[in-house]
């Protein structure tokens, strides 16, 4: 579904991604793990058209989407739930969700989708009339995921969804991601919380200094000495 080939990208003259290749197949949960500064967020931003690719190719459903405008990429069915939630703080939760369905393909079924999403997130339903900025961190993360779901994406990308959440909320969040994948939505997830993510994922890639250093199934990576030593402290 998503194929990334020899992708190079960066900011100005500093190269962050030094030719990475990976792919996500339909129905899979794929994760990219790595420490701070490895290039995880840059990878995602390049996929979404926010950061320019210097070379390489990104194809989605067979079409080349490298360096296409962000709004076109969203229209094609690739939605990212950004790091740090990035809600519209002075919009109500309801309006935040409706913004999630901004893309043209999502507008015709918005009422139905809205109900489905609220069913998944009962806590969000209680907050619909509040400004998104007034919610707690955990609630904001739920709204951010719900907003991403409103687009009915083919591929949903999570950037550090557990960042800044309490351990209990992290558990809850991973349960929600499991529910989402059970609906058949393909998921690409980037995390520093390596243990949880690899347990959840079908396959994973380890990103180090802008290069893919290791790949395999979630279990293979969990068992690998390198991952255990460098990321799990075992």
């Amino acid at each position: 579904m998503l194929k990334v080939h020899d992708l190079r990208a960066g900011y100005g003259k500093s190269e962050v991604l030094r030719g990475i290749s990976f792919e996500v197949n339909r129905g899979e949960v794929v994760t990219i793990v790595g420490v701070n500064g490895a290039g995880k967020s840059t990878t995602l931003k390049t996929l979404c058209g926010v950061v320019r690719a210097q070379s390489g190719r990104i194809t989605f459903d067979g079409a080349d989407i490298s360096n296409r405008p962000a709004n076109e990429i969203v229209e094609r069915g690739l939605t990212m739930i950004p790091e740090g939630r990035q809600l519209f703080p002075f919009l109500t939760v309801k309006d935040n969700l409706l913004m999630g369905a901004y893309k043209k393909a999502a507008r015709s079924t918005v009422a139905k989708r809205y109900e489905e999403v609220l069913e998944m997130f009962p806590r969000v339903r209680e907050r619909l009339a509040q400004h998104a900025g007034s919610l707690s961190g955990g609630e904001q993360q739920m709204v951010a995921i719900a907003r991403g779901m409103m687009a009915s994406p083919k591929l949903l990308i999570f950037d550090e969804p557990s960042l800044g959440l309490s351990p209990l909320l992290v558990e809850m969040m991973f349960e929600i991601i499991e529910k989402i994948t059970a609906q058949g939505i393909t998921v690409l997830i980037v995390e520093q919380n390596v243990f949880h993510t690899l347990k959840l994922a079908d396959r994973g890639y380890v990103l180090e200094n802008g290069e893919i250093s290791l790949s395999g199934t979630g279990q293979e990576l969990l068992d690998s000495d390198h991952v255990r030593r460098a990321y799990l402290g075992m």
Binding site: V50, N71, T79, Q86, F88, M99, Y102
Partner: peptide, 22 residues
């Protein structure tokens, strides 16, 4: 949708672009 996008863009350009707003 366009009116809501106006408000969204004014509050958070980046997030709005991730929603598919030009």
């Amino acid at each position: 949708y366009v009116g809501r996008a106006f408000r969204a863009v004014s509050q958070h350009r980046y997030a709005a672009s991730l929603m598919g707003v030009n």
